[in-house]
Simulated assay, not measured.
Amino acid sequence: MALPLRTNFKHFFRFIHGFNPTKRSLCAGNEERKGSSRVFSGIQPTGVPHLGNFLGALENWVSLQEQHSSVLYSIVDLHSITQPQDPTLLRENILDMAASLLACGIDPEKVILFQQSQVSEHAELSWILGCLTSMPRLRHLPQWKMKSKVKQEGSVGLYTYPVLQAADILLYKSTHVPVGEDQVQHLELAQDLARIFNHHYGDVFPEPCALLSSTRKVKSLRDPTNKMSKSDPQKMATITITDSPDDIALKIRRAVTDFTSDVSFDPERRPGVSNLVTIHAATAGISVDEALRGAAGLDTGAYKTLVTEAVVQRLQPIREQIHRLRAEPAHLEQVLSRGNSRAKELASPVIAEVRHRVGFT
Rank of each mutant, 00 (worst) to 15 (best):
N8D: 15
H11E: 15
F15Y: 15
H17K: 13
G18C: 08
S25L: 11
E31R: 00
R33I: 06
Q44E: 13
P45C: 05
V48F: 01
N53A: 05
L58C: 04
E59R: 15
H68I: 06
H68W: 02
S69Y: 00
S70T: 09
V71R: 03
V71T: 13
S74R: 06
D77K: 03
D77G: 06
L78F: 08
H79Q: 06
Q85V: 14
L89T: 15
L95P: 12
D96H: 14
A98M: 03
L101Y: 02
L102H: 04
A103E: 07
V111L: 01
F114N: 05
Q118K: 15
Q118E: 15
V119Y: 05
E121T: 10
S126D: 06
W127K: 06
I128G: 09
L129N: 03
G130L: 10
M135C: 07
P136N: 13
R139H: 12
L141P: 00
W144P: 04
S148W: 02
K149C: 00
K151G: 02
E153N: 11
E153K: 11
A167R: 09
D168R: 07
Y172G: 07
T175K: 01
V177G: 08
V177L: 10
P178G: 05
G180I: 04
E181T: 12
D182P: 00
A190T: 08
L193M: 10
L193D: 01
R195P: 01
N198G: 03
N198T: 06
H200D: 07
H200E: 01
L212M: 10
S214T: 12
K217C: 00
K219I: 03
S220A: 10
L221N: 10
K230M: 12
D232I: 12
M236N: 13
T238I: 08
I239L: 14
T240W: 01
T240H: 14
T242S: 09
T242W: 03
D243V: 07
S244Q: 00
A249H: 09
T257P: 04
D262P: 00
P271H: 07
P271T: 05
G272L: 09
V273Q: 09
V277L: 11
I279N: 10
I279E: 06
A282P: 02
I286R: 14
A291V: 11
G294Q: 15
G294L: 14
A295Q: 10
T300K: 11
T300S: 13
T300D: 11
Y303V: 04
E309H: 07
L315N: 08
R319M: 07
L325F: 10
E328I: 00
H331Q: 12
E333Y: 00
V335M: 04
R338G: 03
G339K: 02
N340K: 05
S348L: 14
V354L: 04
V354H: 05
R355S: 05
H356Y: 04
H356F: 01
